[in-house]
């Protein structure tokens, strides 16, 4: 069960990774300077900045998918940690 949940987190992480790369690209493209693109290299800061600038960058859908992936991964982490502790 724990292994299955671990496996489930791989495709979710990959989707999150793609969303993060898309956010970095958009940050470099849509902003005049490189500041936001460089800041987005940290995924957590990128997630926050992506939401701050989502309308300006027209990036709502990617941010929604990315956030959903992060939430699913957090839930999976909690379940796996709890299941590991119980077994």
């Amino acid at each position: 069960m724990i292994a299955l949940l671990g496996l489930l987190s791989i495709p979710v992480s990959l989707v999150a990774l793609v969303c993060w790369i898309m956010t970095i690209i958009v940050a470099f493209k849509k902003e005049e300077g490189p500041l936001f693109g460089i800041l987005c290299i940290c995924p957590l800061i990128g997630l926050i900045l992506g939401w701050v600038k989502n309308k300006e960058w027209d990036h709502q859908k990617v941010m929604l998918v990315w956030t959903a992936c992060v939430v699913i991964n957090i839930i999976l982490n909690i379940v796996v940690t709890a299941a590991s502790a119980a077994s």
């Binding site: 992480s13 940290c42 995924p43 991964n73 957090i74 982490n77 909690i78 940690t81």
Partner: peptide, 22 residues
């Protein structure tokens, strides 16, 4: 000491991002 949100860069590459450890 529970890792709820794990940095994907650190997890995938073993190299920490600037925000790791914050």
């Amino acid at each position: 000491g529970v890792s709820v949100y794990q940095c994907p860069i650190l997890k995938l590459t073993g190299v920490p991002c600037p925000g790791c450890g914050l």
